[in-house]
Amino acid sequence: MTYNWDWAILVREPFLGWLIAGTGLTLAIAGLGWAIALTVGVIVGIGRTVANRPIRAASAIYVQVFRNIPLLVQMFLWYFVLPELLPTAWGHWLKRDLPAPEFWTAVVALGLFTAARIAEQVRSGIRTVPQGQTQAALASGLRATQTLRLVVLPQCFRIILPPLTSELLTTIKNSSLALTIGVLELTAQSRQIESNTFHGFEAFTAATAIYLAIATLVRLAMRRFEAGRSMPQAKQAPPMALREA
C-alpha cells in the first residue's frame, strides 16, 4: 500500500477550521439534545409512576414509540416526512424559513429519542427509593408533589447518575447521525476532509481523538459531580466479590 501520510493537513486551513466547526456543532447538537432529553425524560419518567391512568398510559406510549424506532429513522421522519404531513404553511416554514432546519431537526430528534431512554431510568430510579421514604415524608405533612420534589427525586437522581453519565456519552456519539440529514458536525467534516484531500486516515483519526477527548472530559466532570453528592447507606455491606474457590 502506498499511502502518503500527511498529518500536517490537520492543522492546515481550511481543514483545521472544518474540524473546529464540526466539533462545535457536535457539542451543540449533543448539548441542546441533552437538555431536551433531560426535561422531557424526567417528566415522562415521573408520568410513568403516577396514579393517574391516562398520564401513565401516555407516558408508556411515548417511551414505546421513541425507544423502539431507530434514531436514524427518526431523523429521517422529522426531516423528510413531518414537513409534508403538517399544514402547508407550517411545512414551508420548517423547510424554508427556519434557520438551519437540519440542525434543529437533529437536536429535536436526538433529544426526544434520548428522552425515552432517560424516562426509563427515572422510572426505575423512583421505584428504587424505598416506600418508607415516601411514607415518612407524607407523615411529616409534606404534600405528594413536595414529597416527590424534596425526597424522592433527589434520591432517584443520585441512584441513576452513573447510567445517566453513560447515556450522555451515548448522546454525544449519536449526534454523528445528524450527518445523514446534512449537518456538518464532526464526522461529516472528517468525511469532507477525506473527499477533498484523500487523507481519510488522518481525518478520521482526528475525529476519533476528539470524540475520545470529549468523552473523557465528560466522564471526569460527572465523576466530580457525583462525588459531591454521595449518599452513604447505613449497614450496607459492600458487594461480595465472586471468585472461584
Binding site: 415518612a136 415524608a137 407523615a139 405533612g141 434520591q155
Partner: peptide, 29 residues
Amino acid sequence: VRLRTRVGMVFQNFELYPHLSVLENLCLA
C-alpha cells in the same frame, strides 16, 4: 396535611432522608 403536622410518626426503619444531613432532616418539614 394539617393532621400530619400535629401527629408525628417514628418508623421501624428510621426512614431518615439519606441524601440530607441530620440538620436538614430536622428542618425539611
